[in-house]
């Protein structure tokens, strides 16, 4: 899929991915790839700054996990504000998809 088409939707995708539960950056990238059957194979470099931006905006929070073995990882989770924002993004997307779908379905001809 053309990455240009995703502009403006990246935040929605990230918030929706983290709605399933906290995850670290690389797991978020993989989840997006898997849930979209590889259609959304985004350049990794766009994901981490976007996660940071959402964190600065208060929609995500991040904490370091300290496993007994293995590397420390920064784990991201939705904040209550992020959950509200996701609801708004979802409603906006559904309205948008309905509106565009009405044209693409070609059900109603143009008035004469």
């Amino acid at each position: 899929m053309n990455p240009e088409m995703l502009k403006g939707h990246l935040d929605t995708i990230l918030l929706a991915t983290l709605a399933d539960g906290p995850a670290h950056g690389y797991a978020v990238i993989q989840a997006i790839r898997q849930r979209s059957d590889g259609s959304l194979d985004l350049p990794e470099g766009t994901i981490y700054p976007a996660l940071h931006r959402l964190e600065l905006a208060g929609l995500l929070r991040s904490d370091w996990t300290s496993p007994s073995e293995g590397r420390r990882k920064r784990v991201y989770a939705l904040t209550p504000a992020g959950l509200v924002a996701l609801g708004e993004h979802r409603a906006n997307w559904q309205r948008f998809a309905r509106a565009v779908g009405a044209f693409l379905d070609g059900a109603a001809p143009c008035p004469a």
Partner: peptide, 11 residues
């Protein structure tokens, strides 16, 4: 930014 890149590369 450095920490994020290091974490990404490690993974």
């Amino acid at each position: 930014a450095r920490a994020d890149v290091e974490e990404y590369l490690a993974e």
